[in-house]
Design a binder for these strands. Structure first.
Lengths: 330, 330
DNA sequence: TTGTACGCGTTATCAT
DNA sequence: ATGATAACGCGTACAA
């Protein structure tokens, strides 16, 4: 756009006139001319995304939608629900048919999936659990600082018998939480007990319930639990409630995600994931990629965000006597 | 479109060729030609809509987004966050600028707000708490059958001392739950006690907490609670937990909404609102309105959906002895 | 029945 | 600098 020096008054008058005449530029015509649909595609992590069973993918979807609005885009979800007609590359067909300007992928299942999109010259951003084999811009959340802070907090509050409830996911991201946990234990000279690490197949309340059950059955009971997902924590709390084990009086609990941790009973201390920022950065990255002329693209950027601990009412400070007692017991 | 008699084989070949050449019709060009943006506007009930503080408006938003995709529309949210620049009719300017084909309003604050949109010939659908003064298509949820079923359930389980926690909203919809409650009490010859009806200003966990506190302080304690919102129930449960009053052993609880009732501790029996259906119907109504040529529109349709009770683990059956004891006590 | 040309509203380009 | 013009891709109307 050229320099366009216009007095403030003139500017006002023009805008007033425009409003009076009811003129507003037509975004559709603009889109046609610019050869841009202003629509982004979104491929969710899994198909059955419900607010309370899969809180992270769900909230990510919501934040992405908001971020899109802020950046002037629309977004269409390419779940297999919407694309289930033909074979596997139906997803690509769906997105191509919608003429999307770019695609956001949440934790794609395979590198192939990503590759197919790139083959069609579609700008792509991967989130949360990227396929590192394919070089694209990506946004991840570093689990280490938050997890470390959480376990350190438990230790500070006098806990030495700390259990871990997580999942046996294959992606590095899933392993990092456990590794951070183990690292803090080591730092404080605490022994990692096999029976106090419970890995379930997936994040779900039912699995949390089962994990809590197994943990409570161990000969010696931990004094604190680190649960790597809010919905796992729901199951844990439901089980403890049935057994009349009170939190934090009998057992302290910290969860990961901090999505509805504050709305549980009792409100849980939790590691907050910045999903809103993550969504925002993803759209920024994608928008930048789309704007970039086909000339030459820079090296794909990888954004890593950090977490932080939110303290609530689910961790109790152990008295000196209790700490001593435990020390003797082991 | 004319009759277009084409053999099955030809059809196949054409589609194959189309795919091979990578041709897909361009939705933007189609939209321009048809003079339709395929975008709907959505005016949420309030501005600060978060998943767990305002579950109903939030989930409605999400379901509306899905319904839009199913019907081939995009949706833009016209929160004051996106429109906050000038005065009050900024909202209309925003929607006009986006060239939306129609608008969904969740519980509009004033009749004026609706009227202004209609003045601009925008098709409008009102949801949940419509301004009846303006005749538009609308979708509501009838609170009576579900509430009635809930209170009947409590009575069947032997409860005769039932309290009500609600809000003092002005809209008929807010009053209906209380009226249905009172009606069932009357049917069973149970007395309505003033101190067992607590009305808070808004639906929030904090208010639920306060309401539970007030209710527990009453000289005679009810044996069951009907709470007219899941987030109110969150506060109620948090308070009861602090007081070590167990649900349902010491006190039975039923909530309204059934959004995260099943994910609370303990899982709550709850009155389910069909928000998904409501969203779907709203978009259907709006789409039909948009398709209707300017010739003549029919009488605006008003859709009323019903609720149903979902039974979980928060209601205890009172024994005969307990019932007798209570009967004597009063 | 089959084909061709024009217009939707914008913006980029070209000529003045 | 300023203004006229063509083209984006589809749908439709009109002509052949």
């Amino acid at each position: 756009m050229s320099t366009m020096r216009v007095s403030q008054e003139t500017r006002e008058r023009i805008l007033d006139a425009a409003r009076e005449l009811g003129y507003t530029p037509n975004p559709v015509a603009r889109a046609l001319r610019r050869q841009r649909s202003n629509v982004l595609g979104f491929v969710p992590r899994s198909d059955r995304i419900t607010p309370y069973d899969s809180p992270v993918p769900f909230l990510l979807t919501v934040h992405l939608a908001h971020a899109c609005i802020r950046h002037g885009y629309h977004i269409v979800e390419a779940s297999t629900e919407s694309t289930s007609r033909h074979g596997e590359d139906d997803l690509v067909q769906f997105l191509l048919g919608r003429h999307v300007d770019g695609v956001v992928l949440d934790s794609p299942d395979s590198a192939q999936e990503v590759a197919r999109l790139i083959d069609h010259r579609l700008p792509v951003v991967q989130m949360i659990r990227p396929q590192h084999a394919i070089k694209t811009p990506s946004v991840m959340v570093d689990a280490v600082p938050g997890t470390t802070e959480a376990i350190e907090h438990l230790v500070e509050m006098g806990h030495r018998h700390i259990a871990f409830i997580g999942t046996s996911g294959q992606h590095p991201v899933d392993r990092l939480r456990l590794e951070a946990f183990e690292h803090v234990l080591e730092t404080h000279g605490l022994r990692r007990r096999e029976e106090w690490v419970v890995l379930e197949s997936t994040y779900s309340a039912a699995n949390g319930y089962a994990a809590a059950n197994r943990l409570i059955e161990t000969p010696e009971r931990p004094t604190a639990l680190f649960v790597t997902g809010d919905n796992l924590a729901v199951g844990v709390l439901q089980h403890l409630y049935e057994r009349n084990i009170r939190v934090p009086e009998h057992l302290s609990v910290i969860s990961y995600d901090d999505i509805f941790a504050g709305h549980l009973v009792p409100p849980l201390t939790s590691v907050n994931q910045p999903l809103n920022d993550a969504a925002d950065r993803a759209i920024e990255l994608l928008a930048a990629d789309i704007e970039t002329p086909p000339g030459q693209h820079e090296q794909p950027q990888s954004v890593v965000l950090s977490t932080h601990l939110v303290t609530r009412a689910s961790v109790r400070r152990l008295s000196m006597k209790e700490q001593a007692h435990i020390a003797v017991a082991r």
